[in-house]
Design a protein around this nucleic acid. Sequence first.
DNA 1: ATGATTTTAGAAAACCTTTTCTATAATAGG
DNA 2: CCTATTATAGAAAAGGTTTTCTAAAATCAT
Lengths: 344, 344
Amino acid sequence: MDQQKRATISDVAKLAGVSITTVSRVMNKNYPVKEATRKKVEKAIEELEFKPNLLARGLIHNKTQTICILTPSIENLFFSEVVKGIDSVIKNKGYTTFLCNTEGDPEQEKLMIDNMKDRSVDGIIAINPRTKNIKSGYYEGISKQIPLVIINGYNRGIHCNYVLNDGEVGTYEALKYLYELGHRDIVFLRGRYSYSYDVKEDIYRKCCEEFKLEFDEDNILIIEDGNGLEAVEQSKAVVEKIIRKNDKVSCLFACNDWMAVGALKAAKALNISVPEEFSIIGFDNTIISQITEPSLTTVDQNMTGLGQISGNRICEIIRDSDKENKKIIIETRLIHRDSVSTKI
Amino acid sequence: MDQQKRATISDVAKLAGVSITTVSRVMNKNYPVKEATRKKVEKAIEELEFKPNLLARGLIHNKTQTICILTPSIENLFFSEVVKGIDSVIKNKGYTTFLCNTEGDPEQEKLMIDNMKDRSVDGIIAINPRTKNIKSGYYEGISKQIPLVIINGYNRGIHCNYVLNDGEVGTYEALKYLYELGHRDIVFLRGRYSYSYDVKEDIYRKCCEEFKLEFDEDNILIIEDGNGLEAVEQSKAVVEKIIRKNDKVSCLFACNDWMAVGALKAAKALNISVPEEFSIIGFDNTIISQITEPSLTTVDQNMTGLGQISGNRICEIIRDSDKENKKIIIETRLIHRDSVSTKI
DNA sequence: ATGATTTTAGAAAACCTTTTCTATAATAGG
DNA sequence: CCTATTATAGAAAAGGTTTTCTAAAATCAT
């Protein structure tokens, strides 16, 4: 490797016949320099292709123009869409992103944040961080040391900067929609381990009351893994079972699109047509909801927007350090596609 | 923000009553230190929760324990799967990843690499970089300055470290499979701008000769955007057109799963059943191939493996700098699902 | 022309480590 | 007991920048 040594500021100074101080001033335009001197220096900079060493700069300012994105799994459509949103805005502000995959492990989450502190990142955006670390106050502590934005991890009483989508309203509207189409026996399908599922189940229970539906605990289906093909398989299994068991059920609300796909596959396996005989609503509006046959009616979370807003927010926090914490809520929106029809 | 100042090495030295040199030696264990002194120092380190500043360290060694992953679009399933693979191996070797989204723009690609050089990353992994930058020799130049691995961008005569999947064999096997099932009029569907599509088209043309198929230039379909919903829409349009126009065609080979989904949708729109009346083979074996109805027969690229091998390779290159370039080829594998049947 | 003020530029300290070189203390060998 | 060697520790330089403080040069007012 012919690592031809990069020119340093003193190389430039020597070539231009000035001091390094002057070169620095020409680079940063933060102090007047006589026109003639500037020209000389600029010529030398050009000639040597001088680019300042960002590590040295970071060492002085204790700023690195880097932001860390913490995610449970980058290969999940939901997260990668959010990451894209974040990246698209902070890039324009001169930041570069460190990506940390925690694999959903609370301990790794902490280790990685430690690592990021050691690397002097300017801010951290944690996407769906583990509830455990939020509730324990860990994040609240971090938030006092370093600019932090938490996406989808709001906990009452824990003071941090949050950006989250309104899962409550989204769920309510989806359920109400089913109700208004005449459905009375609605299956609710969720994963076991996420705060967002708890919130949705809560709304489901409230809706049953509000709409005076005959509540049946068995209509709440729980699977273990909430994402990916595992979620599809598991959902398929439990949905097949409930349909076989209870022929009154005419529709299903799934906490995310994966689960909805599983439901779709269950219906297909039982030779039940969607949406004519069975309606399905998903959540997230990931790209898969447009690929299934029929396409999925689902609740849009505006994931890119979630990312963009978080990106802007972290920059704000970095800029004027100690403003008070904020909780920013992104609206959801029911997307009508082909997996829902009126109750016959 | 109560950025309580982190302890520095000299704080530790002062507290322990030794020189900073000694503290450094205790930290790095690269020089003998008397047991009693070590104890004192270790106690001080613990007490002050001292963690060395990685920027300062990087400045000296010109190593930062960071690796840059360059990708056209992280929200694309294919890329995010590869990223996950890379991340999983380099994490264990103490590296942290910078993520750069180029949005497929050759100029951004170069800017970001510049940025990464300024940040003194230890190595760069470029996933599906733009052909233009490879052919122009740009990457060959970079490769001489900094450890570099190119995933899926092999170009004969351009000397770099490559990791790639065997698109040629994968394509050949898929086409041969269709041929052996009795298909004689095979549509080929590709995107415009990627080298990997060129490779596949090449094989397609060779297969037509080898299998003595009646070659028809019109059976090569080209769409503009190769990925995501755009690819689905565009594919649907062109496939509908070709089926309408030429009723002999009985099957289609798509250069990736998105395009295959588009073909699936086209068939659906024309009320042609897959696979009974029309067979479709995709490429990549992304998760969507298991979600479509029917599920897609496709060529598996082992994306996680691609990532893992690239991660290991970059570490090797970083370690012993100037070994010769290597080209590592990952095998592909035809995955049989439900979108292909014998020609009736 | 002289002194006061403003421009412009450089020297040196600072940021936090690592590493080389030097010096002292401890041990061994005679 | 004295010298030669080894074990241990510190001072200082280096890495590349920014910034403060000081000094010289140029401008202005009188």
